[in-house]
Amino acid sequence: MTHLPERLLAGYRNFMSRRYPSESARYQSLARDGQSPETMVIACCDSRAAPETVFDAGPGELFVVRNVANLVPPYAPDDRFHGTSAALEFAVQSLKVKHIVVMGHGRCGGIGAALNPSAEPLSPGDFIGKWMGLVAPAAEAVSGNAMMTAVERQTALERISIRYQLANLRTFPCVKILEDKGRLTLHGAWFDIQTGELWVMDPKTGDFTRPDLD
């Protein structure tokens, strides 16, 4: 009797028979020496936009934290629970990553919820609604633009939100200090699920462009 969905067990069998044998030395090294990724990725928990897949990353290459709509709460050293902030603290202070990438994506359900705050909550706790309140000012501005279509508003807020999260990252003293010293670089990226295209944010203008793949 198994206690996991058969699809997961089948995937694990495939991993052990195909991938692990070719990467066993790397896994053993990671187990012995620990991880030392140079890049942290803050991504959405949407199953269609996995950073390890998009960036074709191997074990130990990326330190990834995923939450609804790839949000970063502003620095708040209080007695509440802060999962994303804890991961950020560990990545910057312990792993000493050199890059932090905020990666949004198209057709994000969290962003859609932010654009429709009057929709019926999924539960009495309305955790998604409260969480997406982090981008409420931008959502209100975008949703009020009658000249844009619904799809345009969705994409616009997905990208604007990335800029919001980069600003929130800089409220963390450890991030701001290291960025000012040139020891940490912040990046924004947006992934189009339908086309597979990755759009990268220009740090100076905030515009998103597709990188040259040649």
Rank of each mutant, 00 (worst) to 15 (best):
Glu23Trp: 12
Glu23Gly: 09
Glu23Cys: 08
Ser24His: 08
Ala25Asp: 14
Ala25Lys: 10
Ala25Asn: 15
Tyr27Gly: 15
Tyr27Trp: 15
Gln28Gly: 11
Gln28Asn: 14
Gln28Met: 11
Leu30Ile: 08
Ala31Gln: 14
Arg32Gly: 11
Arg32Phe: 07
Arg32Tyr: 08
Gly34Arg: 06
Gln35Cys: 01
Gln35Gly: 02
Ser36Leu: 06
Ser36Met: 07
Ser36Tyr: 09
Pro37Val: 06
Pro37Thr: 07
Glu38Phe: 07
Thr39Tyr: 05
Met40Cys: 09
Met40Val: 05
Met40Asp: 05
Val41Arg: 00
Ile42Val: 14
Ile42Arg: 00
Ala43Tyr: 04
Cys44Arg: 11
Cys44His: 11
Cys45Ser: 14
Asp46Asn: 15
Ser47Arg: 13
Ala50Arg: 15
Thr53Met: 15
Thr53Pro: 08
Val54Tyr: 11
Asp56Gln: 13
Asp56Asn: 12
Asp56Glu: 09
Ala57Trp: 01
Gly58Phe: 06
Pro59Trp: 03
Gly60Ile: 04
Glu61Asp: 01
Glu61Val: 00
Leu62His: 03
Phe63Glu: 00
Phe63Arg: 05
Val65Thr: 04
Val65Trp: 00
Arg66Ile: 01
Arg66Leu: 00
Arg66Gly: 08
Asn67His: 05
Val68His: 08
Val68Ile: 13
Ala69Gln: 07
Ala69His: 03
Asn70His: 15
Asn70Tyr: 04
Asn70Ser: 03
Leu71Arg: 02
Leu71His: 00
Val72Leu: 01
Val72Cys: 02
Pro73Met: 04
Pro73Glu: 03
Pro73Gly: 06
Pro73Ile: 01
Pro73Phe: 01
Pro74His: 02
Pro74Cys: 01
Pro74Ile: 00
Tyr75Val: 04
Ala76Arg: 13
Ala76Thr: 10
Pro77His: 08
Pro77Asp: 12
Pro77Arg: 05
Pro77Glu: 07
Asp78Glu: 07
Arg80Lys: 12
Arg80Ala: 07
Phe81Met: 05
Phe81Tyr: 14
His82Val: 05
His82Asn: 10
His82Ile: 01
Ala86Tyr: 11
Ala87Tyr: 12
Ala87Glu: 10
Leu88Arg: 10
Glu89Ile: 06
Phe90Trp: 15
Ala91Trp: 08
Ala91Phe: 11
Val92Trp: 09
Val92Lys: 08
Val92Ile: 12
Val92Arg: 09
Val92Asp: 15
Lys96Gln: 14
Val97Asp: 04
His99Lys: 13
His99Ser: 10
Val101Phe: 07
Met103Tyr: 07
Met103Ser: 07
